[in-house]
Design a protein around this nucleic acid. Structure first.
Length: 637
RNA sequence: GCCACCGUAGCUCAGUUGGCAGAGCAGCUGAUUUGUAAUCAGCCGGUCGGGGGUUCGAAUCCCUUCGGUGGCUCCA
């Protein structure tokens, strides 16, 4: 008998040594609630322990690992499909994988699932789990499997099978419910300890809108009820931070039916934050030797013909408007304008790099169903820049952009991010040599900075390779903001050149780059990141001055005026409400500081300041408060 | 765009089988002059998203249209 080496929680057990046989090992695995086994990169069911070939070490997979949790969720999706089949016999099952935070399963059913249906399905699942049906793996030929699922009327499984190349396929059966599946699965249904169905929605078969729309149920599963509870609390926190809700509560922005979907109105509070962000952005760009531009919102259609946008970006562009017999398009991008500025003079190799930056407002058609608050809109302002440089300058320019990006993101409290390098796709423009040079320059810059990144092979845009930076917010959610893209297409289409030292015309490399992406989207992310409690430098109102009674009105006015003169954004509340009420109002507006003014302060000409979280600080006079606040504003904490 | 759900006062939401449109908050007025997250009272506020239909009668049922939400596809 071949020996099996199993690593159970760090203890290595050799089944052939020490008189231990596989039964002992199975007992041990059961004791630690192992869900599956791992040998090399492959996963196996625990029941298949006797069939695993090879002498490599086998590891027990428990729910504590990412893989184990994935297996648990996948098995839960099977149980859900089982329950749905029991409750709705006519339903056909499609696919049901585990995903980032849980799992889903798609069903072909005439009547969509209601919230009550989800509760009923949950109950049915509980019963299945209680029965502890074992997950039994079966293998059969592809032809037999096709016949089996044809007989069961499971058309989608048949379609999947027809696309599978292997001759032999595996199936899993649990309590009479049989499903095509690669596995592995948990040993039995009672291995599922904590799960919840979250929502149902429509989803096209295989994600293609030409196909039939199926009904998808999303759910999640965790190792324990506590962890599940924590996850539900997380979802509540996400709801609490929803930028659309906070946007209304804090009077930041609005969207109106009668103005148009996906079009943002920035209210005074939101506008003040945007102005602060823009000021910071402009200052830093000037320091980094970018030249600022302003360009028009519309341009003749010929420009977009020449740029190629009419060919490859038409579905995102609005229909042209007629001006004096010529068609004009509202701009979806700023690039052609920046190129026009570059081309307005002859450029020498000595002039390069030339870096143009613009907060350019663009309009793109987005299908109504994808619009979402500030995060997905139809009109938005990009923090756009285009760098024209020589090939030998790419790497150092990318290095600068990376530094710049990380500095800007950090200023807004984003300390963690994931970086992706996307390489040449199948359809591309430019020469393979140039792609190689540019891609390696991007890679070299990342390596030099010691930045961890993942390569996405073939995920580049057709016009050049790119680096995407996805920030992680305070809830550890990932958002794509920054992007750095090399472009071989536009310089060629517009015959962009510079005069080189060899006295010939050469084509510069063009780099598109956005740090925040769009101001609207970035603002939405910021609202959720800070939960509306912006740091002092960004807060639209930085201080509220609150009086205890009418007696202190004059002193309060004096304090407010001093703050205002010093450039602090201040508001006063001298109404006849109690101080508790005023503090509550101030906190609900998430104003960082409240200056409380009573008789004590008035007599001593001192100040009592209450921070947003309730902490108190005393200042002997207004000068002390001002320098304290200035320091915090300047450090952008 | 597609599927589902939703749209009632500025906001959050009740409104039973079709039978007189409600509450809290906000706003306004008055009283109150208050020390670290809601003082009390009164008042104002609605073509029930728009249009059409069924009905003696529609917020409620049907059709249509606009918008929102969650997904599907794409993306800043």
């Amino acid at each position: 008998m071949e020996s099996i080496v199993v690593n159970i929680e760090g203890e290595v057990i050799d089944s052939s040594a020490g008189g231990r046989n596989t039964d002992d090992i199975l007992k041990r695995l059961k004791k630690i609630n192992a869900l599956a086994l791992k040998s090399g990169d492959e996963y196996f069911d625990i029941s298949s322990i006797g069939e695993i070939k090879g002498t490599g070490e086998i590891t027990a997979v428990t729910i504590d690992s990412k893989e184990g949790l994935g297996i648990c969720r996948h098995s839960t999706s099977h149980i859900m499909a089982h329950a749905v089949k029991d409750l709705y016999p006519g339903v056909k099952v499609a696919i049901g994988p585990s995903i980032e935070d849980g799992f889903y399963y798609d069903f072909d059913i005439d009547t969509p699932f209601t919230p009550e249906a989800l509760t009923a399905i949950e109950k049915a699942m509980q019963k299945i789990i209680k029965r502890n049906n074992p997950f039994v793996r079966k293998t059969m030929s592809r032809a037999d499997a096709i016949k089996l699922f044809k007989d069961l009327g499971e058309d989608y499984k048949v379609e999947l099978l027809e696309a599978i190349e292997a001759d032999e396929v595996s199936l899993y059966e649990e309590g009479g419910f049989i499903d095509l599946c690669r596995g592995p699965h948990v040993p039995g249904t009672s291995s599922i300890r904590a799960f919840k169905l979250l929502k149902s929605s429509g989803a096209y078969w295989r994600g293609d809108e030409k196909n039939k729309m199926l009904q998808r149920i999303y759910g999640t599963a965790f190792a324990t009820q506590e962890e599940l509870k924590k996850h539900i609390e997380f979802l509540d926190e996400v709801k609490r931070r929803d930028h659309r809700r906070l946007g209304r509560e804090l009077d930041l922005f609005s969207i109106h039916d009668d103005i148009g979907a996906g079009l943002i109105l920035w209210h005074p509070n939101g506008a003040m934050i945007r102005k602060t962000i823009e000021d910071f952005w402009r200052e830093e760009h000037i320091k980094a030797d970018y030249k600022l531009l302003y360009t028009p919102h519309i341009a003749k259609i010929d420009l977009w013909q020449k740029s190629g946008h009419l060919d490859f970006y038409k579905e995102n562009m609005y229909t042209p408007m007629d001006i004096d017999g010529a068609d004009y398009e509202i701009k979806p991008m700023n690039c052609p304008f920046h190129i026009a500025v570059y081309k307005s003079a002859l450029r020498s190799y000595r002039d390069l790099p030339i870096k143009y930056a613009e907060l350019g407002t663009v309009y793109r058609y987005e299908r109504s169903g994808v619009l979402h608050g500030l995060l997905r809109v139809r009109g938005f302002t990009q923090d756009d820049a285009h760098i024209f440089c020589r090939v030998d300058q790419i790497e150092s320019e990318i290095l600068d952009v990376l530094d710049f990006t990380i500095y800007v993101l950090k200023t807004f409290g984003f300390e963690k991010y994931d970086i992706y390098l996307s390489t040449r796709p199948e359809k591309y423009v430019g020469t393979p040599e140039n792609w190689e040079i540019a891609t390696e320059a991007l890679r070299a810059a990342l390596e030099k900075k010691g930045l961890k990144y993942e390569t996405d092979p073939g995920e580049g845009v057709f016009y050049g390779p790119k680096i995407d930076i996805k920030v992680k917010d305070s809830l550890n959610r990932q958002w794509q903001c920054s992007t750095i893209q090399v472009d071989f297409n536009l310089p060629k289409r517009f015959s962009v050149t510079y005069r080189a030292s060899d006295d010939n015309e050469h084509m510069p490399i063009m780099i598109h780059r956005a740090l925040m992406g769009s101001l609207e989207r970035f603002f939405g992310i910021l609202i959720e990141h800070y939960a509306g409690a912006f740091p002092l430098w960004l807060s639209p109102v930085q201080v509220s001055v609150l009086t205890i009674s009418e007696r202190q009105a004059d002193y309060a006015k004096e304090i407010a005026a001093s703050l205002l003169r010093a450039g602090i954004r201040v508001e006063t509340d001298m109404g006849d409400e109690k101080i508790n009420y005023k503090i509550r109002q101030s906190s609900m507006k998430k104003i960082p500081y409240a200056v409380l003014i009573g008789d004590k302060e008035m007599e001593a000409r001192s100040l009592t300041v209450r921070k947003r979280k309730g902490e108190n600080i005393s200042f002997t006079d207004i000068k002390n408060l001002l320098s304290f606040m200035r320091e915090e504003i300047e450090s952008r904490r």
